[in-house]
Amino acid sequence: MLKSLLETISDIGVMSQRDIRRYFRLPQLLITNVILNVVLLLLFNYVFGGAIQTGGVDYIQYFLPGFLVQSVVFGSTQTSVGISEDLSKGLIDRFRSLPMARAAFLSGRVVADTLRYLILVILMIAVGYAAGFRFQGGFFPAFAGVWLIILFGIALTWVGVFIGISVKDVETAQVAGFVWVFPLVFASSLYVPIETMPSWLQAFANINPVTPMVDTIRALSWGTSISSSLWKILVWDLGIILVCLPLALRRYRLLAQ
């Protein structure tokens, strides 16, 4: 029992090490991702910053918490691509013929992606600081905020894993990723206050998990009260994982059909 648990942990470790190496060796994955995010952040801040009314708050102060969330949401589409790549190249057959833990192939990817999100979020915070952003609530709320974003990222990564293992080819995975990610990011409180949207869109934005996620991070970084958004996002995280993780594992088993 203990032996199999230790083996499972070791398997997940070995698989995640492989994915982490991949991120560092394919510059387009980590480096361009970072550069793209930095460029986007600076563009949004200086181009739209003056135009969007955020109720007296500096735009960078309003926008960066959302941007941190966005980098993780977009990042989860890469999970689908990575998984579908392994499936299409036949590498998966080798892994499945090895006596490793069944969950290691998928979980290893999630562990590696968690690390990727952490690097990305810390970098974005650093760039934000250079552009004038400040955590006004102090260290602990900031610390908690970072981990809440990572947790959200882990939940979305399981969505990405499920999509990747379902579509099985790289191009479809790429497109499929953006189809569900764009509405989430834009129809939320991430870029603009929800009150500026038409009412039907407000309805969607209010149930969109990105909204409570962004609201929570804003509250934590501004040092204001976090109201109900914290519980909403925790329920969302848990719900997404409880649905997508078993679905993804089931898909993995169904590869034998």
């Binding site: 190496r21 991949r22 060796r25 394919l26 190249k89 036949g90 590498l91 057959d93 080798r94 013929s97």
Partner: peptide
């Protein structure tokens, strides 16, 4: 197992 196409991690 060595499958029909080489299954090595290129990275």
């Amino acid at each position: 197992l060595a499958g029909q196409y080489p299954a090595v991690d290129e990275n």
